[in-house]
Structures are given as structure tokens and as C-alpha cells.
Amino acid sequence: MKLYYAPGACSLSPHIALHEAGLAHELVKVDLRAKKTESGGDFTEINPKGQVPALELDNGELLTEGPVILQMIADTATDKHLAPPAGSSERYRLQEWLNFITTELHKNFSPLFQPVIPDDVKTFFKDRLMGKFKYIDGKLAGHDYLMGKAFTVADGYLFVMLSWADRMNFDLSGLPNLVAYKARIAARPNVQAALKMEGLLKAA
């Protein structure tokens, strides 16, 4: 498999999942502004959406959209239990979390990365995001991970959103469950491996 990524972007989520799944993969860095791969190729010829993540499968097909890629990775390595079995009630709970993260967190972060958007508008979106984080903090009470005791691909996705919150100077100190959760995910060896490969964590 070949993962097209940009360091620290939402593509970090499937990158973490690939490590957790133990699946062999190649990384191709993408300049999202120039829409160029690290070799100078036109990324839009690979993915017309011009976005990461994009995962090239071993059969040559290209899969896009993070939540879908995450589930495909989990289903390719069922022995790692990164997602409940397809069709189970727990699988729908996982999909519920993935949809919440992608619509209520991921997309609400987008305006914060745009320099042309006024500060008062950014404040509106930061306040909205804080409300979502407070909701998650409540749901994490008594739980190690979003689905309970087991790490799933949704946890890697939420970890990336929490990393973005750090970059945007969110004060999450009043959300102890979420703070402890982020530290728990960050300590996972496979998460650290993905961070190091993207240049986001210095090698020891």
C-alpha cells in the first residue's frame, strides 16, 4: 500500500492505523499548496480531489476519505481488532464516532487554518470546537478509549484533532479526561513511530 500524506495533516490518522495494523506501506509526501508529490509529480493526477489522505491499494485502486480508509485498514488486519466486526452494533458505534470526528471536529477546524478569515470568525469556530471537546470529555469518563477499553481507528483520528488543538492554542486543561486520553494515545509505540516518520517527534 502507498499512503499519500502531508506531515501533521489528517493523513496522520491512517498513518497511525497502518502502524497499529502492522501493514507494510510506502509513504509519499505531498505539498498540499503546490499539489505536488515529493518527486515533483502532479498530485491531482493521482487524486483529483487534491487532498490527503489518499491510499493506493496493492491492486492499484485509490481510496480517499479518511474514515473510509481507516475502516478498510482495520478490516484488512482483523486480528488487530482496530474496529468491531462489520454489521455489529459496535461497528455502528465506531462509525458514529468517525462521523462525529470528521464533521464536528475536522471540518470545524478548517477555518482556523485560513489566514484570510477574520479573527472574530475564528473565535466562533474555536468556541464551537470547545463545546464538542467538552462533550467528548464527558463520554471518556471511566473509559480508556472512545469505544471503552480497546483502541480503535477512531482513537487515532481523535488524537490528530487534539494535536491540531495544541497547534491552535486551545486550553483543554479543564477537560481532564481528554487530557489524560491524549497522553495515553501519544504514549503508544505505533503512534510515536508514525509521528517520528512524519518528522513530528524527534527520535530518541
Rank of each mutant, 00 (worst) to 15 (best):
K29A: 02
H143N: 10
S163T: 06
M168W: 02
A180I: 12
V52N: 05
G142L: 10
P14W: 01
F151T: 08
I16P: 00
L82V: 08
L57G: 10
P53M: 12
T152S: 15
K29N: 03
P48I: 11
V30I: 02
E56I: 09
D120F: 15
D31A: 00
T76E: 14
G8Q: 04
G199S: 11
A21C: 14
Y4I: 06
A141G: 05
Y92N: 00
L200I: 15
F124H: 12
I136R: 04
S173R: 05
A21R: 05
Q114P: 07
E198Y: 02
A86N: 13
C10A: 09
D120G: 10
Y135A: 07
V28W: 04
Q192L: 04
K122D: 12
F133W: 00
S163P: 08
D79K: 13
A154H: 09
G8D: 04
A154N: 06
V121T: 15
K29Y: 01
N177D: 03
E65Y: 09
A180P: 08
G174K: 05
F125T: 11
T123E: 13
N108E: 09
Q114Y: 03
H143A: 06
F109E: 09
P67K: 12
K29T: 02
K202Y: 04
R167G: 11
F109K: 04
G50M: 04
T102H: 13
E56H: 06
G66F: 13
L62D: 09
H19F: 10
K36N: 03
L129V: 03
D144F: 11
P85K: 09
T78S: 12
K182E: 03
E45D: 12
G131L: 06
L63H: 12
A183P: 13
Y181Q: 06
V160F: 01
L98P: 06
V160G: 00
I117S: 02
T44W: 12
L146H: 02
G50L: 05
K29D: 02
S88N: 05
V68G: 11
A194N: 10
K49G: 13
S110L: 12
F100Y: 03
L27G: 10
L94C: 09
F100Q: 08
A83I: 09
N169V: 14
D31P: 00
R167P: 02
P48V: 08
I46T: 10
A183I: 07
P7I: 14
F100C: 02
P115L: 14
D79A: 13
M168Q: 14
N169Q: 15
A24I: 06
L12N: 01
A54R: 03
T152C: 10
A203G: 07
T78V: 14
F100T: 01
D171R: 04
K182P: 00
P85A: 13
L140R: 02
M161A: 05
Q71H: 11
V160W: 02
K126F: 04
I185P: 15
A83E: 10
I185M: 09
R128W: 15
T76M: 15
E90L: 06
V30S: 01
L3S: 04
T44V: 08
A74T: 11
G174S: 13
G60I: 10
E90V: 03
R33A: 08
D144N: 15
